[in-house]
């Protein structure tokens, strides 16, 4: 049965493995160069005693597209496994009738599916792991650049790093097999597998991941360093100010940022009393740039306004990775279990 599985699987297996290896080689060749460029740049500006900010910005600009591309490949790979390894595994046999040949040899159907799913499923996990290691290693330089904007819990970075690609690969494979078993035709099975997988991959970061761990709540003072966007509007001589907070620590994943008043009620925009002129442009005594905003923010703080932030700290990257991988592996096992049930009870 192992021979038969390999005989049927060898062409898609070699094709996808070749793609993954080629991709890994490409990353292995470019990765050290990127790391060296960054290290040299930092060393240079440290030596000259200048600010490293412009260099870091340039560096990130240069590699943003490449990094996005690599992440995209990491996202597509599990889908390919589901499409080309999972969906046809059983549906192709049912479609052309060869299951009636193989089921009449001296081997039970359960064993037939066990061997097929184990070998192909393990291959899927290996491909997922190889891809994940290569991408994580290649992107480590870019990922570790200190940058406030950057959060590793955001979907396109999170999905291609660490251990989750293994879970995604296993899930995509099990999904493909299940759909193929239900639809009994390879091409529709591939289409439905892709559609379902894409939906799941969008739903996970949007609807599920924020709740994997209870988010951290923080109430922080409104200062220049906590404000992400600042808006000001004059109406009938009264100032209306809009402030939006940002993540309180580097790389954190901000779920919601609200402004609350002194009694803790959320407010959309802050309307200052007529008596307060701190936020009225041109009223500020000090001419230095940015001082107007500073005075204004100080006034907001004096009036009791605060940021109320809900976020996941950056340190949760690995807990999230393990939890999400666990969820996907559990889903994969559940689908595999369903496949065996369906094979015994419905597929006849």
């Amino acid at each position: 049965m192992i021979w038969l599985t390999w005989r049927q699987f060898r062409i898609p297996a070699i094709t996808l493995f070749a793609l993954v290896v080629a991709f890994a080689v490409l990353l292995a060749m470019t990765g050290p160069g990127i790391a060296a460029e960054y290290a040299d740049g930092i060393a240079a500006c440290a030596q000259q005693g200048t600010d490293c900010g412009p260099f870091v910005n340039n560096f990130l600009n240069d590699y943003q597209t490449a990094s996005l591309g690599v992440s995209a490949v990491a996202l597509v790979m599990p889908a390919l496994i589901g499409l080309f390894w999972g969906a046809p595994l059983v549906s192709r046999e049912l479609e052309v009738g060869t299951h009636r040949l193989v089921w009449n040899q001296s081997i039970t159907r359960t064993r037939w599916l066990v061997v097929k799913m184990t070998i192909t499923g393990l291959a899927a996990v290996v491909v997922g792991a190889v891809g994940a290691v290569a991408v994580t290693w290649w992107a480590s330089t870019i990922d570790n650049v200190p940058d406030n904007e950057f959060n590793r819990l955001a979907s396109w970075v999170f999905d291609g790093r660490g251990v989750v690609p293994i879970g995604y690969s296993a899930f995509a494979f099990a999904l493909g097999v299940t759909v193929g078993m239900l639809l009994r035709r390879a091409l529709p099975a591939m289409a439905v597998t892709l559609a379902v997988f894409v939906v799941v991959q969008f739903a996970m970061p949007l609807l599920v991941r924020p709740y994997l761990l209870p988010p951290t709540d923080a109430t922080v003072e409104i200062t220049e360093s906590t404000v992400d966007t600042f808006g000001h509007n004059m109406q009938n001589g009264r100032s209306t100010v809009l402030v939006e907070g940002q993540a309180p620590e580097e790389g954190a994943w901000l779920l919601s940022a609200r402004t609350v008043d002194s009694s803790g009620n959320p407010v959309e925009a802050i309307t200052l009393p007529e008596s307060s002129t701190a936020c009225t442009p041109g009223q500020s005594a000090t001419p230095e740039p940015g001082a107007g905003m500073k005075t204004c923010l100080a006034e907001l703080t004096r009036l009791g306004y605060r940021h109320e932030l809900t976020y996941h700290p950056a340190s949760r990257f690995w807990p999230f990775q393990w939890i999400e991988t666990g969820i996907y592996l559990a889903l994969s096992l559940a689908l595999a279990g369903f496949c065996f049930w369906w094979l015994r009870h419905r597929l006849a």
Binding site: M1, W3, L4, R7, V102, Q105, S106, I107
Partner: peptide
């Protein structure tokens, strides 16, 4: 070969 592998 398939027959040989799957039938004792």
């Amino acid at each position: 070969r398939l027959g040989a592998r799957l039938n004792p």
